[in-house]
């Protein structure tokens, strides 16, 4: 009776024993699971490695394929640029193993171009550069070695490779368009909203903001003036009411 209902003092020891054996069983299961996952992961990584070796040439030459490969790596939590993915044995990154050492170099050289471009265009776009524009400009390549065939993902990867340097370069998305922000400045909600509207409409006026967003005149005016002061918008005064434009897509080949 007492064992069934567990009301005596002995019940405490019993309960402890049960809890302990549950815990032991649990950790057994856990480690078994972990071991099998570990095995799976290793198999997967070696497959990925083989795949990468097999398609090295394509990865190297075809930006779309490279992007898809990078996306696949990302999806399973493998950062191809990082050095420690393949456990312990070698310090080289997956990229470096697959494509020889020049692949890290590839991203670094893209990164250099990106930094150059961000700096040279900062005065005109306030340090906000569309990934697409950046891509086109890098591909046109005025610099040494000519144009690099790169995809938007390559640029993103390159920007990420700058992170350890504390570069302050960040990828951000405004209205489904990706940008590189090279000036360490936080945009407030209102500013982001206006930039989103600019993405869609190309230009805005204070009145338009008031009517569509229900903002007070002062609020709309402040946001615009802030954006203007940061070179994030340009003003056209040859209209009934000043129009504010996003300076994306102003980069010229021959400048």
């Amino acid at each position: 009776m007492s064992t069934r209902r567990g009301v005596g003092l002995g019940a405490f020891t019993n309960r402890n024993a049960t809890a302990q054996s549950y815990a032991a069983h649990g950790s057994n299961l856990k480690s078994a699971n972990a071991a099998s996952l570990q095995a799976q992961l290793e198999v997967f990584q070696s497959l990925l490695h083989n795949f990468a070796l097999e398609h090295a040439a394509t990865i190297k030459s075809n930006p779309t394929f490279r992007a898809e490969f990078a996306r696949m790596c990302n999806a399973i939590g493998v950062d191809p640029l990082a050095g420690s993915n393949i456990k312990g044995k070698k310090a080289d990154s997956l990229w470096a193993k697959v494509l020889g050492h020049d692949v890290n170099d590839f991203y670094f050289s893209v990164a250099v171009r990106v930094v150059e471009l961000c700096q040279s265009t900062r005065a005109e776009n306030g340090g906000l550069l569309g990934l697409k524009e950046c891509c086109e400009s890098v591909a046109r390549g005025r610099a040494i070695g000519g144009g690099l065939q790169v995809s938007e993902d390559d640029i993103e990867q390159a920007v990420k490779s700058l992170e350890p340097l504390g570069s302050g370069f960040v990828i951000l998305t405004i209205a489904h368009k990706r940008f590189i922000r090279s000036v360490p400045k936080e945009l407030n909600t209102d500013q982001s909203t206006v930039l989103e509207v600019l993405q869609l409409l190309g230009s805005v006026t204070v009145t338009l903001l008031q009517l569509n967003l229900g903002w007070e005149p002062a609020r709309a005016e402040t946001v615009i003036q802030d954006l203007l002061a940061d070179s994030l918008v340009w003003v056209d005064l040859q209209c009934r009411e000043p129009e504010y434009w996003s300076p994306q897509g102003l980069i010229d080949e021959n400048e």
């Binding site: 005109e124 306030g126 203007l228 340009w234 003003v235 209209c239 300076p247 102003l250």
Partner: peptide, 24 residues
């Protein structure tokens, strides 16, 4: 490209932007 960008024809009030504009 700036030629088809309406603000290109108005003097920009922000110094940095203005410099970029003059250079263009």
């Amino acid at each position: 490209k700036s030629y088809n960008f309406p603000p290109f024809f108005s003097p920009q009030p922000t110094t940095l932007t203005r410099e970029a504009q003059l250079r263009k």
